[in-house]
Design a protein around this nucleic acid. Structure first.
Length: 233
DNA sequence: ACATTAATTATGT
DNA sequence: ACATAATTAATGT
């Protein structure tokens, strides 16, 4: 089995304080795996036996409502940990992780989490920050759902996506992975039709440019304006 | 202000 | 050629 290059981890926050010898230890215990686009890395309700790091690609974290509808809870860009339910003491994954594109993933057995925290300087605090940020984001979204209207919610969703996974192009900032209107509707609690209409409208206004599964924000500032919405009576 | 239904068109393998 | 994605209009709550 080919050895993993230490440089894969050196840039990442949880491992920032570690020497190459420690990185080696971690990598030697990791199990690398490649996933095709659109497959589950792990599924909701199954035993949380491992935790994961996304080396390359993009992950969607999905929950299924009692009514059987999908909700996209979170997006994970390359370089981030995910499936860290074991760290929170969960015995089962609370959601499903699906690849949005072909992806490469490292994983470790859940029992190693505590070793990592005690052995490796900075790992505990940094992963704690990650969890904190994700919880905060989800709470923000709950407030949005309750208070804002669809146009603002979709604008906020797109803004988050370009902040977390934006890629600069000559046209503007592009969402760096394939995303459909259906996906956006599942993130914002609307229908794909409403998303489609709004994107078409924004395109006429020169705020975005979109093709199938691709969205480029040509005028981020104007999108921020849309996310603010109109003065509620 | 938005969902739903339905019909139509575009796009990627 | 076929399936999936996107658009658009009409109608409903």
């Amino acid at each position: 089995m080919a050895k993993l290059d230490a440089s894969l981890l050196t840039g990442l926050a949880p491992f920032a304080r570690l020497g190459t010898d420690q990185i080696r230890e971690i990598l030697d215990q990791a199990q690398p795996k490649r996933f095709d686009a659109g497959v589950a890395v792990f599924e909701e309700g199954t035993p949380a036996e491992r935790f994961f790091l996304l080396l390359d690609g993009h992950i969607r974290v999905i929950r299924i409502t009692p009514g059987g509808e999908q909700i996209i809870a979170l997006h994970i860009p390359a370089g981030q940990l995910f499936g860290i339910a074991p760290a929170l003491g969960h015995v089962a994954y609370p959601a499903t992780a699906m690849t949005a594109v072909d992806s490469v993933v490292l994983s470790w057995p859940a029992r190693l989490w505590h070793d990592f925290v005690s052995r490796y300087d900075g790992f505990g605090p940094e992963t704690g920050k990650i969890v904190g940020r994700r919880v905060a984001e989800m709470q923000d979204r709950i407030v949005e759902m309750a208070t804002q209207q669809v146009e603002q919610r979709i604008a906020n969703a797109v803004l988050r996506l370009i902040n977390q996974s934006g890629r600069k192009t000559d046209q503007g900032i592009e969402i760096a992975f394939p995303i459909t209107r259906q996906d956006l509707s599942e993130m914002t609690g609307t229908t794909l039709h409403t998303v489609s209409r709004l994107l078409s409208q924004w395109e006429r206004l020169g705020i975005v440019k979109s093709a199938r599964k691709r969205i480029v924000v040509t005028d981020p500032h104007q999108l921020v304006v849309m996310s603010a919405g109109q003065v509620p009576p």
